[in-house]
Amino acid sequence: MSETSKNILIVDDTPENITALTAIISKFGKIKAATSGMKALKICSGGIKPDLIFLDVTMPEMDGWEVFSRLRQDNTTAAIPVIFVTALTGDSDREKAMSMGAAGYITKPLDAELICSLVKRFI
């Protein structure tokens, strides 16, 4: 079994999407949630860093790309693996995510099997 002490942060402005993703990955550890980019950065600036982040791309005010680059600029959060989650389709976003150094890129509707194998890779 997985260690339950692992922290996974889900960032998505649509609460239903957080609920759906939580349903898939809650068996891997403690799930934290943020509905905005600012909130996500605030959580990451705290003492306990997430072991893995699922980050929605399309969010108002601060989108996923911006959150990601801010995390990368801060030494204390730069190494946290980030998996982008998006309902956008098209290879350009996938390539953008990979070229930025993302740990993964998944699309909605969610593929539970793929997500679990991704999580196991990082936790």
Binding site: T19, A20, T22, A23, I24, D111, C116
Partner: peptide, 8 residues
């Protein structure tokens, strides 16, 4: 899509 989680 929810890994069979009926509750969720």
């Amino acid at each position: 899509h929810l890994a069979g989680n009926v509750r969720a």
